[in-house]
Simulated scan of single mutants.
Amino acid sequence: MLAEVRESDAPPETAAIYAKLREAYGLPLVNLIWRHFAALEGVLPWAWDSVRPALPLLDAARERVRAALPVPGLPMGAEAAELATLYNRGNLSNLILLTALLRGKQGEATTPGAPPPAMLPTPLPLPRIEALPEEVARAVRALGALHGHEGGVIPTLYLHLANWPAVLKPLHASLSPMMATGRIATLRDAALAAASIEADRLRPYLAAPPAPPPEALATARETLRLFTSRVIPEMVPIGLMLAH
């Protein structure tokens, strides 16, 4: 599992940034990549300060990426669809913003003011994998293993779906052939292409705050490369299918 600082464990300075992220995204949760940044010295405030000016442009960018990804439905129940809707907003936002962050600021532009989006409903708490029954934990790990990510990263959506354990095995059965035949890879590449365009549009709006310590920044950039090339763009179409 990736090093992270959970929302319930966050010290005051981290919790304050988490609160700003939730408000800016209109999400009642903080995604894994940001929780991982909090585990690296100086990275969370640097990343937040870098992308904050571009946030008012995110709604339109997110919708353009979504429109570029026509996906089939993957009916797994109302609870899974509602949870996927939350993660879709976070994953689409993060794919665009963090691709821009990884590429770095380029140009100068002033962001027009805009109110944050309405807050989505609060889901059931995120389980801890070590607290799950062994059969449920195995099912969560099996879903993560479909992706073959370096370091065994388990997308948080799968862990969150453990609140409805009956969904996990049918979801694995549905996704496994789509992985094997390259369907998810094709949708991932489409998500990457669409998000790349939007990320470059946002780069002039990024800020350039002082960088964190070199070792922490190197680790953050390595994780960013994995998340923006594989982890997030694979979960974008999966989340859209679940919510469709």
Rank of each mutant, 00 (worst) to 15 (best):
I96G: 03
I96K: 07
L97F: 00
L98Y: 02
A100N: 01
A100L: 01
L101W: 05
R103S: 07
R103A: 09
G104Y: 13
K105P: 02
E108P: 05
A109E: 02
T111V: 08
P112W: 00
G113D: 00
A114M: 10
P115R: 01
P116C: 02
P116G: 04
P116A: 01
P116R: 04
A118V: 09
L120Q: 04
L120K: 05
P121N: 02
P121L: 03
P123D: 01
P123S: 06
P125V: 00
P127M: 08
R128V: 10
I129E: 14
I129W: 12
E130M: 08
A131Y: 11
E134M: 05
E134S: 15
E134V: 08
E135Y: 14
V136P: 13
V136A: 01
A137I: 08
R138Y: 09
R138T: 15
A139L: 13
V140A: 08
V140Y: 08
R141L: 13
A142F: 04
A142G: 15
A142I: 00
A142C: 10
L143W: 14
G144P: 01
A145Y: 03
L146W: 13
L146Y: 14
H147A: 14
H147N: 15
H147E: 15
H147G: 15
G148H: 05
H149Y: 10
H149Q: 11
E150I: 12
E150D: 13
G151W: 07
G152Q: 05
G152E: 10
V153Y: 14
V153G: 12
I154D: 12
I154E: 11
P155E: 01
T156C: 08
T156R: 12
L157Q: 07
Y158A: 05
Y158N: 14
Y158D: 07
L159Y: 12
A162H: 14
A162E: 02
N163M: 00
W164V: 02
P165G: 09
P165W: 08
P165I: 09
V167C: 06
V167W: 11
V167E: 12
V167T: 14
V167A: 14
L168W: 04
K169V: 15
K169A: 15
P170M: 04
P170K: 06
L171S: 11
H172M: 10
H172P: 07
A173F: 10
S174E: 11
S174C: 13
L175K: 11
L175F: 14
P177H: 15
P177S: 08
M178R: 15
M179D: 11
M179S: 13
